[in-house]
């Protein structure tokens, strides 16, 4: 597809004397499915092997984002045992309007210590929330964050339906100024200036590593290579939902550590593309088609009226 386009472009160039500059910049207008995803965008890799469940990240996020005081303080670890509804599979806590990130505990028979997993927005490379929002409230920034603009949001909650990771949450408690509540990668306060987000900085175990996404993939692969017994050979988020900026390493199958392993590897927009391409077809074809039907059906009508001499309105 790409080749075809470029060939056609060079044909234009050759045939009609366009300049090299033309071709160069035309190349940047790419065909679908051929995108470079902000090559310098940042990300975080979360290593489940290193996380001890201290909840420092939760506390840091709460402070950084000015979220309300939680019911139980951040050094209360009983929250791990309270099985609230929510989360994939129904067990464990999930993000909500009071917390952009949560840590959950998973006790697994095959390892001697419990596993902890931090979850927050994964800042997808092709965000489902963004593409499903009918007022374009989300933006994927070149730095890698997926940020949200509450000033245009209508509160339809389609983004929550669309997000494959169950991340955006709604401020249901507010009648007059509800909004979507979701991790924004500390974009305005930190990421914009190139600083790591609050939760990463607060982690005492270096379970969270901040860096360029391309470098993080290297780091992840290296850790797996160096300790093949300690990790499953998969980086969650490398391809999930078309790739995410936040990625995970785990010692056990990701499904056991509470990850949704059914998340498709294609970006969510791929499932909607078919319909989106039908829309302009219907818009352009239907008028002539049905006007034509009308003319065809009407000719008969006219003839009939000639015979019975009836009038129309």
């Amino acid at each position: 597809m790409k080749n075809k386009i470029i060939n056609r472009r060079s044909f234009i160039k050759g045939g009609f004397g366009g300049t090299a500059a033309t071709v160069l910049s035309l190349k940047s207008a790419r065909a679908a499915g051929d995108f470079d995803h902000y090559p310098d965008s940042m990300g975080v890799i979360v290593d489940l092997n290193r996380c001890v469940g201290c909840r420092s990240c939760e506390a840091a996020c709460n402070k950084e984002q000015g979220l309300p005081e939680p019911e139980k303080p951040f050094n209360d670890y009983s929250v791990f045992d309270a099985h609230e509804s929510g989360g994939h599979g129904g067990a464990g806590r999930r993000t909500d309007e009071t917390r952009y990130t949560v840590v959950n505990k998973y006790e697994l028979p095959e390892i001697d210590h419990p596993l902890y997993r931090k979850s927050q927005c994964n800042h997808c490379l092709e965000p489902a929330c963004l593409t499903s929002c009918f007022v374009n409230a989300y933006t994927k920034t070149p730095e890698g964050a997926v940020i949200y603009n509450a000033d245009v949001c209508v509160g339809c909650r389609t983004c929550m339906i669309a997000c494959p990771f169950y991340i955006p949450t709604f401020k249901y408690s507010s009648a007059f100024s509800p909004r979507i509540m979701k991790c924004i990668f500390c974009y305005d306060t930190r990421l914009k200036e190139g600083r790591p987000p609050a939760c990463v900085e607060a982690c005492p175990q270096e379970a969270l590593t901040f860096g360029k996404r391309v470098d993080l993939l290297e780091i992840g692969r290296k850790r797996i290579r160096q300790n093949p017994g300690g990790y499953v050979n998969h980086i969650y988020g490398e391809n999930e939902a078309g790739g995410t900026a936040w990625m995970y390493l785990s010692p056990v199958d990701f499904g056991e550590a509470g990850f949704d392993v059914h998340v498709p590897h294609e970006p969510v927009i791929n499932f909607v593309r078919d319909f989106l391409s039908i829309v302009p077809m219907v818009l352009v074809i239907w008028p002539a088609l049905f006007a034509g039907f009308h003319l065809l059906a009407n000719r008969k009508e006219q003839n009939k009226h000639h015979h019975i001499d009836g009038g129309e309105e």
Binding site: N136, A137, C153, G155
Partner: peptide, 26 residues
């Protein structure tokens, strides 16, 4: 059901997200 029902006309006049399916519905 809308969180901010008073913003119903937003997808038509304030901020357009034409790639969204709900945009078409609206």
């Amino acid at each position: 059901d809308l969180g901010m029902p008073w913003r119903l006309p937003y997808p038509m006049v304030v901020s357009l997200g034409p790639a969204a399916v709900l945009f078409l519905v609206a």
